[in-house]
């Protein structure tokens, strides 16, 4: 009887009818650029069209503006994907880079007046907010904006990496008792003095690890040193231990010189003419 059912299932004369899939959107210039520069080479999908199923239900948000999408993506590619590719290799980037980027035009404001700049889920999806405020004409403010976005991307990329190959247990033992779910009540200074690079890094060990990565890679070496110097002596000592573990992890596991990557990213951002890149 099972065999009979199997043969019925395999009947290739059955008319399956028309496909249920309707391609609703036509490829425009933006879609084409995304396909050529992100989807085909890196398997990254970018959603810039409004899709509330990807977003927080209770938040009031608006879509990305058409004229902001390409300038932002072009600069992001130059300052995030390309430096990693150069120092970590093509296979490394293609294997681990987040596969879905959602762009939202407006800010994501919380009731308490704070703002969410980006969110990520499961090492696969990253949501970046307020891209309608990215304006390459204003280089300085847009570079600051870009750096904030890069912090999110480095942060999320860090999660993907440690989910692929876990960081050494010794990182967990550096500040085992310093974690709290009320991290938002901790000031920058307080976090630094306790040996945490940002208040958010106090949430848990994983966040601590990726915040350390993101802070190193988002700043120049001088800027990073300036952040460390704001911590108390004991705080600095702890931060140096964490830095050492992170740098060694990148070198041993991923064969990436983190300081070289830091310098490279900084140089790219410094030298990048946003208007020129946006217009390419």
């Amino acid at each position: 009887m099972i065999l009979a059912a199997a043969f019925v299932a395999c009947d290739d004369d059955e008319n399956l009818g028309e496909s249920n899939i309707v391609v609703e959107t036509q490829m425009n210039e933006i879609d084409q650029w995304i396909f050529n520069n992100l989807t085909e080479p890196y398997n990254i999908e970018v959603k810039y069209r409004w899709d509330d199923t990807e977003l927080e239900n209770k938040k009031v948000l608006t879509a990305a503006a058409l004229d902001k999408v390409l300038p932002f993506l072009k600069t992001l590619k130059k300052s995030w994907i390309e430096p990693y590719e150069e120092l970590g290799g093509e296979t490394f980037v293609k294997s681990y880079i987040p596969k879905l980027i959602i762009l939202v035009g407006s800010r994501n404001l919380n009731n308490d007046g704070t703002m969410v700049q980006g969110t990520a889920e499961g090492g696969r999806k990253v949501v970046l907010y307020q891209i309608n405020e990215f304006d390459p004409e204003y280089q300085s403010s847009s570079k600051s904006f870009l750096k904030r976005m890069l912090h999110i991307m480095h942060h999320e990329f860090g999660h993907i990496l440690h989910q692929a190959v876990m960081y050494p247990d010794e990182f967990k033992l550096v500040t085992p008792g310093g974690y709290t779910s009320a991290w938002m009540n901790v000031s920058d200074e307080q976090a630094l003095n306790e040996g945490f690079i940002t208040p958010y890094s106090k949430l848990d060990v994983d966040e601590n690890f990726v915040e350390t990565i993101a802070t190193i890679l988002t700043n120049s070496n001088d800027e990073y040193e300036a952040i460390i110097s704001r911590a108390s002596a004991s705080g600095q000592e702890i931060l140096r231990i964490k830095e050492e573990i992170v740098v060694k992890y990148f070198a041993d596991i991923w064969n990436i010189d983190m300081y070289a990557l830091q310098a490279h990213i900084y140089k790219v951002i410094q030298e990048m003419d946003l208007e020129e890149v946006a217009g390419e």
């Binding site: 069209r49 409004w50 509330d52 009031v60 608006t62 879509a63 902001k68 035009g105 009731n111």
Partner: peptide
């Protein structure tokens, strides 16, 4: 009918000009 990218049509649903709450607008 969904306006899928930002335009003037988003004015009432833009949190940037309404303390995060919007003003009763809808995108979809």
């Amino acid at each position: 009918i969904t306006f899928t990218t930002f335009s003037q049509m988003n004015y009432f649903s833009n949190p940037n000009n309404s303390r995060g709450e919007g003003r009763g607008g809808d995108i979809e």
